[in-house]
């Protein structure tokens, strides 16, 4: 019974305005319209997530926003991306939406936030991004996305 009430409440909320708007980390804002969640099943959220992670080259699910991260691990991801000059990515604040917070964990089968996606592929959380940053893989992965890491410029200058 409780479950029915809960799911009904979810439907109502979803019908009202369950549209996820990513916060743009950079100044430029893309005009693509966000995915709309019109139906009320959790399956739809999973479908939406599939579209959300593919819509932008770099997608981050985090606590807080790039301008104001609310967790040290989310902040670390923002700082690493900033170091590489990646300032145009879609950041979704899971603290704004409990369903998104739990849904994205199911989607990636990954238990924690933050979560980073490149071209729709789950990359990992804070630890993995940090280690990719340290061992140079991140520069390579960004190159595959057509993003030139700012750290390469810094290296050139120092030579």
């Amino acid at each position: 019974m409780n479950a029915i009430i809960r799911s009904t409440a979810r439907c109502l909320r979803a019908g009202a305005a369950a549209v996820y708007l990513p916060v743009r980390a950079g100044a430029r804002v893309w005009s693509a319209s966000p995915p709309r969640r019109l139906l009320c099943a959790a399956a739809d959220l999973q479908k939406d997530l599939g579209a959300m992670v593919k819509k932008d080259k770099v997608v981050v699910f985090m606590k807080g926003t790039p301008a104001q991260p609310m967790c040290g691990f989310s902040n670390a991801v923002v700082q690493i991306l900033r170091m590489h000059g990646v300032d145009q990515y879609a950041a979704y604040n899971v603290l704004d939406d409990g369903e998104l917070r739990e849904g994205v964990k199911v989607f990636s089968n990954w238990p924690t936030i933050p979560q980073v996606y490149f071209s729709g592929e789950f990359v990992g959380g804070c630890d993995i991004l940090l280690q990719m940053h340290q061992n140079g893989d991140l520069v390579e992965e960004l190159k595959k996305l057509g993003i030139h890491s700012a750290l390469l410029n810094a290296e050139k200058e120092s030579k």
Partner: peptide, 16 residues
Amino acid sequence: LLQRHRMVNTCLAEEL
């Protein structure tokens, strides 16, 4: 790395 972390996550699924 991702697979290694997933192994740890799976091992500690209950605890997580």
